[in-house]
Amino acid sequence: MDDNPAGQPAPKPKASDNPDKPRSNRHGRRLQRIREEIERNRTEGPAIPTWVLALILLLIIAAVTALVVFS
């Protein structure tokens, strides 16, 4: 059953519903640490460029293929 009668606006969100403000319980602190880690990862960028990783992957695939074909 709906808590709000027809025609009534939905209640405003509580201050504790703010995703930017960490909660004081363990779950809220864990979420805040996860948000901080994601933000840190976004700002630092990858240590090795993506094209280098792709090139290494292609070399490994070519080496395995060569071993299968020529053995």
Score class of each variant (00 low, 15 high):
6 A>P: 00
2 D>T: 04
67 L>F: 12
31 L>W: 11
45 G>C: 06
29 R>L: 07
21 K>V: 15
19 P>Q: 14
20 D>G: 07
20 D>I: 06
33 R>Q: 07
51 W>E: 13
68 V>I: 11
21 K>L: 12
58 L>T: 02
40 R>N: 04
35 R>T: 01
32 Q>V: 08
16 S>A: 02
48 I>N: 02
29 R>W: 05
68 V>Q: 00
43 T>E: 14
18 N>E: 15
24 S>R: 14
65 T>E: 01
66 A>I: 11
35 R>E: 00
41 N>W: 15
52 V>T: 02
31 L>S: 03
23 R>Q: 14
45 G>K: 03
26 R>V: 15
15 A>W: 09
11 P>Q: 11
12 K>M: 07
25 N>I: 03
28 G>P: 00
61 I>A: 06
35 R>G: 04
13 P>N: 07
54 A>G: 04
40 R>L: 07
10 A>S: 13
10 A>R: 14
38 I>M: 11
45 G>R: 01
21 K>P: 14
25 N>R: 08
47 A>E: 08
25 N>M: 05
67 L>T: 12
63 A>K: 03
1 M>W: 10
32 Q>L: 10
27 H>C: 00
1 M>T: 01
39 E>S: 09
53 L>H: 01
52 V>A: 01
31 L>P: 03
40 R>W: 01
42 R>P: 03
71 S>I: 13
59 L>K: 10
15 A>S: 09
43 T>Q: 10
41 N>F: 08
30 R>H: 15
26 R>N: 06
69 V>T: 09
5 P>M: 00
62 A>C: 12
44 E>H: 12
7 G>R: 03
9 P>S: 04
4 N>T: 11
10 A>I: 14
29 R>G: 06
13 P>G: 12
38 I>H: 08
56 I>R: 06
54 A>S: 09
25 N>H: 00
52 V>N: 02
50 T>P: 12
11 P>S: 13
66 A>L: 03
61 I>F: 02
46 P>L: 12
7 G>W: 06
45 G>I: 12
22 P>E: 15
57 L>A: 14
8 Q>A: 15
40 R>V: 07
13 P>T: 11
39 E>T: 09
67 L>I: 06
30 R>M: 13
36 E>A: 15
22 P>N: 05
66 A>Y: 13
9 P>M: 13
61 I>Y: 00
69 V>A: 11
41 N>K: 14
38 I>P: 07
46 P>C: 12
20 D>N: 07
70 F>G: 04
67 L>G: 10
42 R>K: 05
26 R>Y: 10
64 V>S: 02
25 N>Q: 05
23 R>E: 12
50 T>F: 02
65 T>I: 11
43 T>C: 08
36 E>K: 12
36 E>P: 06
11 P>W: 06
3 D>K: 06
32 Q>K: 07
13 P>I: 13
5 P>C: 02
30 R>L: 13
14 K>F: 06
40 R>A: 13
34 I>F: 08
59 L>E: 10
19 P>W: 00
17 D>Q: 03
57 L>G: 04
16 S>D: 12
68 V>C: 08
3 D>A: 08
23 R>W: 09
47 A>K: 09
7 G>K: 13
27 H>N: 07
45 G>Q: 05
46 P>I: 08
53 L>A: 05
17 D>G: 10
61 I>G: 03
32 Q>D: 13
18 N>D: 13
50 T>C: 07
40 R>I: 04
2 D>S: 00
29 R>K: 15
1 M>H: 05
13 P>H: 04
21 K>A: 09
